[in-house]
Design a protein around this nucleic acid. Structure first.
Lengths: 142, 142
DNA sequence: ATGAGTTTGCAACAAAGTTGCATAAATCAG
DNA sequence: CTGATTTATGCAACTTTGTTGCAAACTCAT
């Protein structure tokens, strides 16, 4: 019988990350989440995992372009798993939405970040594009 | 003889902020700076001012739309004085550039932030648009 | 099974932001 | 101008998030 963790193991291997139990668990938890997660979110979802372990695991994931990170202004960084084969180049980046009511942050995966022209001699490496306001669920609650 | 602080006093009064010596000093320092400043930057430039005072002064300035704030991902928030009459609506927002070498952040005042369409029921209040890379001065230093 | 290398948990620390409270400064009424 | 009241500031302590050192636990090839 095929193990259902095979999927996550394969994802990790493709990114040249050794698939330990903890890494599989963290990856699975991130992929199961509809919104982006902070380190504290992961700590709460995974009672078994230490803050420092999560921090180092996510740092590793980011170095291998498996997850991306955005600063939504909430005070903690939020992370989400990238698309398959994503290499986090400017052209591949998408917009993010941060709800000021529920404090959740979502990837708007189908919305590429707008790229503008920079003054001469400026080199562009990355873009943080965060729309802030109220999400659909919170705006329905009056 | 006219006091050269009159300019700053008037700016503060227009925003309905009582112009104390400390507030004038902080406003002047921010307006004299070519790049955005963090609270720590202000603490260093003004040896006489306390972190908590700067924090409360800037919070006050922001409530009155005199300064705006962006999260450039450096770990500390950066502040800059808004244009006259700015009310910080989405249409008035501009892009920002953060240099990953010198860690400075600049307002690109002539570049309005791109606004994209949001899914139904989402309310847009604010946008954080930060381009990251290497600034002109740092890219010249190779 | 054994040992080298890697990963994890614990603890401690660092940096930025935030708050309570006492003193200092500014404002106002008389 | 003087004193009373309000407001602003400085100091200290604290919170939260992120980060690192080190020892124990785990992994994997032999």
């Amino acid at each position: 019988m095929e193990n259902r963790n095979d999927k996550y193991e394969e994802i990790l291997r493709k990114r040249e990350i050794r698939p330990t139990a903890m890494r599989i668990l963290i990856l699975k938890t991130m992929m199961d989440s509809a919104e982006m997660v902070s380190i504290l979110d992961l700590e709460n979802k995974l009672e078994t995992a230490e803050k420092s372990t999560i921090f180092r695991t996510i740092s590793l994931f980011m170095m291998h372009n498996l997850v991306h990170c955005i600063d939504d202004g909430s005070g903690s960084l939020k992370y989400a798993v990238c698309n398959t084969d994503c290499s986090c180049s400017v052209k591949e980046l998408h917009a993010h939405f941060h709800c000021e009511k529920c404090d959740k942050t979502f990837c708007l995966k189908s919305t590429p970040v707008p790229v503008i022209a920079l003054p001469d001699k400026f080199v562009l490496n990355n873009i943080n594009y965060v729309l802030k306001g109220v999400c659909d669920k919170c705006s329905n609650k009056q």
